[in-house]
Amino acid sequence: MQPPPQPPPRSGPPPGPPDVALSTGAVARHLGVSPNTLRSWERRYAIGPARREGGRHRRWSPQDIARLELMCRLTAQGVPPAEAARAALDAAPAARAASGAPHPAPGGPGPLRLGEVRPECRGLARAAVRLDAPSVAELLDTALAEHGLVTAWEEIIAPTLHAVGRTWASAGERYVEVEHLLSWHVSAAMHRLRPPPAAPHPAAPPVLLACVPDELHSLPIEALAAALGERGLPVRMFGAALPARALRDAVRRTGPRAVVLWSQTRTTADAALARSVADIEWGLRGARGRPALLLAGPGWGAGAPQPRAERLFGLRSGLEVIAALAADAAPTNGAGRAGPAAYGS
């Protein structure tokens, strides 16, 4: 399962505050903080919007948002919130704009270059760069609740992870802490998703998910495991860097309907291991089973898949392939379960 390709980052200064008055939720997404944080700042430090509709609904103007951006930048640099709020309230956004200088964006050592992305993605990136763990957790939970796991992964979470990875890869050790914090919270958010009650047939063969040996990047198959759980499909998740012998033993012990092997880089992809997993059989003579082997991740390259294997590309399409495997009632080629050849590989 390979994350969808991302558009190239745009050059130039980061975008300034929006030109229209926004709701509290929209401002929170823009800044990468939670709506509760904005309300708390308004109560404690009087750094609220100047305009309300009907006396109740807050509408944040560009000047209001500029003050909040300055407060976010100052708190990211270690300034206490009360002092940062006073400085932001005393500042003159109009004078800064008239000077022609680009407005500073919140976020520690500098903003991530994201290109054309959803506002939720930009807000999540800003919160991650600030190392604002509570906001990262809340923004992830909100994205998953509002958009569902697949859309949240493909349009919000994965683009942010790609941007962090590109930045630290080109900037030495900078931003490594951002990637670690964001990755941990993404994993935790997916673990918080509650699968539906067990299906009526708990003995149905599971889908086995594992990274190849030496592969430590497991977030994409964690997303796949959560998505399969949402559909009520049984899953056995073994995570990062599963040793080859342990992988083969797990396949023999569980008799899975499919095995998904994730490889992030060419250096970890192991064609010999893939072939050995595809050759594993179990059961009585004359009625042996064999798993469908699904190779996921960019490490496997763009060439033809291994014999008796199929490639997965993206969470959404990979989920559909596995769901079809679970529901398929095609002839089993004498192997007790349909082999990968029945699914277009």
Rank of each mutant, 00 (worst) to 15 (best):
P4N: 11
Q6M: 14
P17I: 02
L22I: 12
L22N: 10
R29N: 10
H30S: 12
L31Q: 05
G32M: 01
S34C: 06
N36S: 14
W41G: 11
W41T: 08
R43I: 00
R44D: 06
P49E: 10
E53Q: 15
H57Y: 08
M71P: 09
C72H: 09
Q77K: 09
Q77W: 13
P80N: 09
P80T: 03
E83R: 12
E83W: 03
A84R: 02
R86C: 10
A87T: 09
A88G: 04
A97N: 03
A101K: 11
P109Q: 10
G110Q: 05
E116N: 13
V117S: 05
R122D: 11
R126N: 07
A127Q: 04
L131D: 06
D132N: 10
L140H: 06
V150Y: 07
A152S: 13
W153K: 03
H162C: 13
R166L: 15
T167S: 13
S170W: 08
R174V: 04
Y175G: 06
E177G: 14
E179A: 02
S183I: 00
H185W: 02
A188S: 12
R192F: 07
L193H: 08
H201V: 04
A203D: 15
A223T: 07
L228H: 07
R257T: 08
V260W: 01
V260L: 11
W262G: 14
W262T: 05
T265L: 14
L273M: 03
E281I: 02
L284E: 14
R285P: 13
G286Q: 06
R288M: 14
L294M: 12
A296C: 00
P305M: 01
P307G: 02
L312H: 01
G318V: 08
E320K: 10
E320V: 11
A330V: 14
P331D: 02
T332N: 12
T332Y: 01
T332S: 12
T332I: 04
A341E: 15
